[in-house]
């Protein structure tokens, strides 16, 4: 394997995936690098590297979620539940949009989030099934449920924000 070429080609996408999955740049950095470190001990056809990387990286995220010390750094639903409706003047802020997306993603269980994000990266259902440890025939159903959940949560939070903006339900 040409490790150098693989790194240059795959690291940006892996980092992007991990950042989307965890919402934390430091975590994404650490796990992406740790994943490539582990790849160095492997030998496999190049065609298998990309799904392997994403699988291992997601397992590392999952391991991190389980560890109490990392829990506060990873995307967790309770972390992003607002204590109050955002101030109206914040809603035009792009940072608030980002937070809205993060909150919506946080409502999706990690496995379903993994499937959604791997789909965005163009993986096949077979690859996603192996990575997530589910039956290939169930991937479509899990994706559909996760997409609907995301849309529902996003629109609900966006609606709450709009309500805060103008005092009426948006």
């Amino acid at each position: 394997m040409d490790y150098d070429a693989l790194f240059h080609r795959l690291h940006p996408a892996l980092y992007r995936y991990l950042y989307r999955l965890t919402g934390d740049a430091d975590t994404a950095d650490d796990i992406a690098q740790e994943t490539f470190v582990r790849l160095l001990r492997q030998s496999m056809p190049e065609s298998e590297v990309r799904p392997w990387l994403f699988t291992v990286a997601t397992n590392l995220v999952r391991d991190g979620v389980r560890k109490a010390g990392r829990r506060q750094r990873l995307l967790a639903a309770e972390r992003f539940m607002p204590a109050s409706v955002p101030r109206p003047d914040e809603m035009a802020d792009r940072a608030e949009q980002v937070e809205l997306v993060r909150r919506a993603l946080a409502q999706i269980p990690l496995r379903d989030r993994q499937l959604l994000l791997m789909r965005e990266e163009g993986f096949t259902y077979e690859e996603m099934a192996r990575a997530a440890g589910v039956a290939p025939g169930s991937v479509g159903t899990l994706l559909g449920r996760a997409l609907r959940r995301f849309a529902q949560v996003y629109q609900a939070q966006d609606g709450r924000a709009q309500e805060g903006t103008d005092g009426t339900r948006g």
Binding site: H11, P12, Y15, R16, Y19, R20, G23, A25, A28, D29, A32, R94, A95, Q97, V98, V101, R102, A104, L105, L116, L117, E120, L147, R148, F150, A151, Y154
Partner: peptide, 21 residues
């Protein structure tokens, strides 16, 4: 529509992502 919403949302998130170290 849900898929398009997710893709657009992820682009918003990506725009705020710091570059890798």
């Amino acid at each position: 529509e849900a898929s398009a919403l997710l893709s657009a949302s992820l682009r918003v998130l990506d725009a705020a992502a710091p570059a890798p170290k």
